[in-house]
């Protein structure tokens, strides 16, 4: 009985400590990020103002428009296929971006983590230095690289790998390359952070048991750095979904992504309630996925750290 009480007391103390540690950040977040979002929840139930903004008149029209499309010409109601195809394009490109960033970022993080300790921070800095320049100028630099007379095509033509320039600019490939470039540090750094203290004696032990390199990678290294991989994937996937500048510049602006669609409602479309409803929908989808992930992570990591 006594130990039970002690245990309960310790638990209480731990929870209190956790809340104390979290409070300062929560205050900033609630004041400057989540709190203001309540304004958006409110807006999504109002009527669009004539020239942007909102009118204080209750309406669920915006939520209806997220999923359904009332034809402007004959008033027939259908599923909003324009919104769906934009959502699908965004999800597909974001997924491919995350995958590419992982395939390139994992070996890079591994490489950095296996350097001598005193040079690791230098390598990390090298990853972030290109990002000291402005996002727009970086995107334009990529445009310069992949255009028809750009560096890649000139090189491939010179070595004779192709005899016609590859038409990459203003395609989904261009967007994919651009987004990978923009977001790859968000993959490398978290993976590195969880890999840096990796105990290579484990690997040694595995080799002693005649494991192949591939098996070591899959069965020992990957599971242990999983938190970093997941953190990196979240950091790449979610911002890609709402990306705005890169798709616009490298995609030639012909096709919208989710970020552009929402921006349109707050800008020239002058339909703030729809913009609010669209982004809350996006928020809900991602939040559900994240919470689902946290719950399942808690389940299989339950005994972690005792």
């Amino acid at each position: 009985m006594a130990t039970d009480n002690l245990e309960a007391l310790a638990y209480k103390k731990e929870v209190k400590r956790n809340w104390l540690l979290s409070t300062p950040a929560l205050i900033v977040l609630v004041c400057a990020a989540s709190g203001p979002l309540l304004i958006m929840v409110l807006f999504s139930f109002l009527t669009p103002g004539d020239y942007g903004g909102v009118k204080w008149k209750w309406s669920t029209e915006a939520w209806f428009q997220v999923a359904f499309y009332k034809d402007i010409f004959d008033d027939t109601v259908t599923i909003a296929d324009a919104h769906l195809s934009i959502l699908w394009r965004s999800v597909r490109l974001s997924f491919l971006t995350t995958l590419t960033a992982f395939l390139l970022g994992f070996p890079t993080a591994y490489f950095i983590a296996t350097r001598p300790p005193e040079t690791r921070n230098i390598w990390l800095f090298l990853v972030t230095i290109p990002f000291w320049t402005n996002l727009l100028i970086r995107t334009f630099a990529i445009l310069e690289i992949i255009r028809n007379h750009g560096v890649i095509n000139s090189f491939l033509l010179a070595v004779g790998a192709i005899d016609q320039p590859l038409d990459m600019l203003f395609t989904d490939i261009a967007i994919l390359l651009g987004m990978t470039y923009v977001y790859i540090p968000l993959m490398i750094l978290p993976i590195y952070a969880s890999m840096e203290r990796f105990d290579f004696r484990l690997v040694e032990a595995a080799y002693d048991l005649y494991a192949s390199r591939w098996r070591v990678l899959r069965k020992i290294i990957l599971p242990l750095v999983k938190p970093g991989v997941i953190a990196g994937s979240i950091l790449v996937f979610i911002p890609s979904l709402g990306a705005y500048v890169t798709p616009r510049v490298l995609g030639g602006g012909k096709n919208l992504m989710l970020g552009n669609l929402i921006e349109l409602q707050f800008g020239q479309g002058r339909n703030w309630p729809l913009g609010a409803a669209l982004s809350l929908t996006l928020l809900a989808i991602v939040m559900i996925a994240l919470i689902f992930y946290v719950r399942s992570a808690q389940k299989d990591g339950g005994g972690h750290g005792h």
Partner: peptide
């Protein structure tokens, strides 16, 4: 707490921008 901390990632910038 986890959801609140990650929320700024998920909402497109323009939405936070207008709300702010």
């Amino acid at each position: 707490i986890y959801a609140l901390v990650n929320q700024p990632l998920i909402v497109p910038e323009i939405v936070t921008a207008v709300a702010l």
